[in-house]
């Protein structure tokens, strides 16, 4: 129990922030609570570095929550759970054009501050796969930010 209390005290705020970045406020408390219930139930499975593992649990819990919302109110589920990048409209528009798969790996690095090894734990993939996913996603975001000028670059030799 001591171990659980340490995990909860040490990571509650981070898990809550993770969920708030991805879900409407009215489901945050439920998802955070469920995440730590799973943590308590599976305390023997929690690795020495708990946070990526907790994010992975929260991610799955969120997915379940979205499925429940989709059954109850499909339109709500489609629009309610995706806080966008704030204060940067161009970035938000470019970010919205990415797939959820791309967005999530970028969020984990940029917003949660995870390394790619930690992000791989959250995404349940290999570190190599996560690295490839990350670089591709980052490139796609950069390309989307450049989209207005796409195919009309200035340097010699480029497409316009």
């Amino acid at each position: 129990m001591q171990q659980f209390e340490q995990i909860y005290a040490g990571h509650r705020d981070a898990v809550r922030a993770y969920v708030r970045r991805r879900a409407p406020e009215d489901v945050v408390d439920d998802v955070v609570a469920e995440t730590f219930v799973v943590c308590l139930r599976r305390i023997q499975d929690v690795p020495g570095e708990p946070l990526p593992w907790l994010y992975a649990v929260a991610r799955k819990t969120l997915a379940n929550e979205r499925r429940k919302l989709a059954r109850r109110a499909p339109a709500y589920a489609e629009t309610a759970g995706e806080p966008e990048p704030v204060g940067d409209g161009v970035l938000a528009a470019a970010f919205a054009l990415l797939s959820e798969r791309d967005r999530e790996v970028l969020r984990l690095v940029a917003w949660e501050g995870l390394s790619l090894g930690q992000a791989a734990t959250v995404l349940d993939c290999s570190a190599v796969a996560c690295r490839v996913r990350y670089h591709r996603a980052k490139a796609r975001l950069a390309a989307r930010l450049e989209a207005a000028a796409s195919f009309r670059p200035e340097p010699e030799g480029a497409l316009r």
């Binding site: 806080p83 690095v109 501050g113 390394s115």
Partner: peptide, 24 residues
Amino acid sequence: MTDVIARLAAANPVPTGAAVHEPA
């Protein structure tokens, strides 16, 4: 392109001050 991640980090809807570990 690292600045893309820095830009995204600056637009974090729930900032916590966590450092961004741009992969080496």
